[in-house]
């Protein structure tokens, strides 16, 4: 910073100010989670008395109460819905992206626009008709009621990401393989898929985060404890246990623990993956 060099005092002040700003922001962002975990160990009365301090007695049983209430089932449901959605979504998006990049067919531009256009439409717009479809086909209250719309609403962005990545793969690779007598399916599987691994990981992570946190479909299309995902499960949990703050907070803490732990261990991959697509 050249300007900084000419006014050392000002630069120092600047620096202190920036440190102060960022430290404050970091505390604001992180402290609520620390507060959540600390208070999860308290009883309701302790919390009314002192929401700041460390628990006087660490009430580990809050966590077992919360766990027994059904958090485990919700987490499992979320896992099933998320993994199935990601797998189906990536498969379809990769196929579509491959065709859009390497194959020559009519109405290609129009088809690509049609796929991308889906990104504009919020789920609210399709909610009520979708709800009727789910009810009439018997999909209501099954995992599929969550997986299928989640795939559809995730496809536009995922296809966009993978397509952008595939355009960077030199076409000569495919031409050479064609010379060797390989078909499109084989080129797709043996040339493109291995090369696309990094973007598949990123796109998969983005899609997984989206589905894991999805709310409105889960609120509308399922009802049973046996299929409720963690977002909705936590809601019903919160209503039923609102009187007992400690247990409620233990439940909230448990529900985010898996994702929080993964994030803290693999934060570089997380941030990198989730922000890919920021530049074309």
């Amino acid at each position: 910073m050249a300007a900084a060099r000419s006014f050392p005092a000002l630069a120092l002040l600047n620096r202190i100010l920036l440190w102060a700003v960022f430290l404050t922001l970091a505390v604001i962002c992180v402290y609520p989670m620390i507060w959540l975990f600390l208070n999860a160990f308290k009883t309701t009365n302790d919390m009314f008395a002192a929401t700041w301090g460390l628990p006087k007695v660490w009430h580990w049983e809050n966590f077992s109460t919360a766990w027994n209430y059904g958090i485990s089932r919700y987490l499992l449901n979320s896992l099933v819905v998320t993994s199935a959605t990601v797998v189906i979504e990536l498969s379809l998006a990769t196929m579509a992206a491959y065709a859009l990049v390497v194959l020559n067919f009519r109405a290609k531009a129009a088809i690509y626009t049609l796929i991308l256009g889906g990104a504009i439409l919020p789920p609210e717009v399709s909610l009520i008709p979708l709800f009727r479809v789910m009810a009439e086909t018997g999909l209501y209250n099954t995992y599929f009621a969550l997986i299928l719309p989640n795939v559809a609403f995730g496809l536009p962005f995922t296809t966009f990401l993978i397509r952008a990545y595939m355009t960077g793969i030199p076409g000569e690779l495919r031409e050479a393989a064609l010379m060797d007598g390989a078909g499109e399916a084989r080129i797709f599987r043996e040339v493109y898929l291995p090369l696309c691994r990094p973007i598949l990981a990123s796109a998969g992570l983005i899609s997984a985060m989206r589905v894991w946190n999805e709310f409105i479909f889960a609120l509308t299309f399922v009802e049973s404890e046996s299929v409720k995902t963690v977002t909705i499960g936590v809601m019903s949990f919160a209503v039923a246990l609102r009187a007992d703050w400690g247990v409620l907070m233990a439940g909230l803490a448990l529900s985010i623990l898996p994702i929080l732990a993964t994030f803290l261990v693999m934060q570089r991959q997380f941030v990198g993956g989730l922000t890919s697509g920021a530049v074309k």
């Binding site: 579509a96 796929i115 719309p149 496809l155 499109e184």
Partner: peptide, 14 residues
């Protein structure tokens, strides 16, 4: 190749 993705979008979005 694009049909499955399109089908999903037509049935569940558009």
């Amino acid at each position: 190749w694009v049909a499955p993705a399109l089908l999903f979008l037509v049935v569940f979005v558009y």
